[in-house]
């Protein structure tokens, strides 16, 4: 489905963000990408849709080599890749509907998008996605009138509006409270399962990563240092990824609050 072969990235400043990364993601697989700050998680995700240009290596989605595309073909390829951002990255002063419909921009000629003339199918899809994420009545509100959790739901709807073949998710819960974080992760997970959609989720919260992914990739200083199932993520592995820390203690601290959060969440899920 998605194949990264020997991908490296060196920034103009000389910082080497990625070292010969090789990995393969199969259809429907949700991959949690963890690692300390500055390990290259964001860079890796952005290399795939070339918001950051990789310096070396090849990235293949289906049968297209993304690194070889010219500008026009790259735009066509980006339509197939949905992306969900840290801090939502909604266009704050546009309505929720415009934000969701902007997922179709790659398919719509410029003059139509200028007059906000989208096809009936696009609009119906946007309404259904907003309904799915629980924001059916908010479509005419301005994005900056929503709460953080609501904004990230719009972000999810925007990515799914593209009908993507692959989902890239960059720190989706970075500025959300624990309860909302879990709701958001659950939504992303459900969306992937429903569509058999592969996803790479770059996330700093190890517990969330373990709970919501099929597979964990650990990145440290631009290199893949762990690739395996969430269960295989032992304290030793965490130490190789993050360095020394008392992981048992941390987990013990995290567990009770997590349970509490889950309990509240299960009640709130229907809302």
């Amino acid at each position: 489905m998605l194949k990264l072969d020997n991908v490296s990235k060196t920034y103009k400043t000389g910082d080497k963000a990625l070292h010969n990364v090789c990995l393969e993601v199969s259809a429907g697989q949700v991959v949690g990408l963890i690692g300390p700050s500055g390990a290259g998680k964001s860079t890796l995700i952005r290399c795939i849709n070339r918001l950051v240009e990789p310096t070396q290596g090849s990235i293949t989605l289906g049968s297209t080599d993304l690194t070889k595309l010219n500008r026009r073909d790259l735009r066509q390829a980006r339509r197939r890749i949905g992306m969900i951002f840290q801090e939502y990255a909604l266009v704050e002063r546009l309505t929720v509907m415009e934000n969701v419909l902007s997922g179709r921009l790659g398919y719509v000629p410029t003059w139509r998008s200028w007059f906000r003339k989208f096809s009936p199918e696009d609009i119906a899809l946007a309404h259904s996605l907003l309904d799915n994420v629980g924001l059916a009545d908010h479509y005419n509100k301005r994005a900056d009138a929503l709460s953080g959790g609501q904004r990230q739901r719009v972000g999810i709807a925007r990515a799914l509006e593209q009908n993507p073949e692959l989902l890239l998710v960059d720190e989706p819960t970075a500025s959300l409270d624990p309860k909302t974080s879990r709701q958001i992760m659950r939504l992303i997970r459900a969306a992937c399962q429903e569509r058999n959609l592969p996803a790479i989720i770059n996330i700093h919260d190890v517990m969330l990563a373990q709970q919501f992914s099929d597979r964990i990739i650990g990145l440290r200083a631009g290199k893949v240092v762990f690739d395996g199932s969430p269960e295989a993520l032992s304290d030793e592995v965490l130490t190789t990824i993050y360095g020394d820390e008392d992981w048992t203690q941390l987990r013990a601290d995290a567990t009770p609050t997590q349970n509490e959060a889950t309990a509240v969440l299960d009640l709130a899920e229907g809302v």
């Binding site: 509907m97 906000r116 199918e121 609009i123 119906a124 899809l125 259904s128 309904d131």
Partner: peptide, 13 residues
């Protein structure tokens, strides 16, 4: 089914 269950027209307010 989507176009039947959901509105197909939207105008920017």
């Amino acid at each position: 089914s989507l176009t039947q269950t959901y509105p197909t027209r939207w105008k920017r307010p």
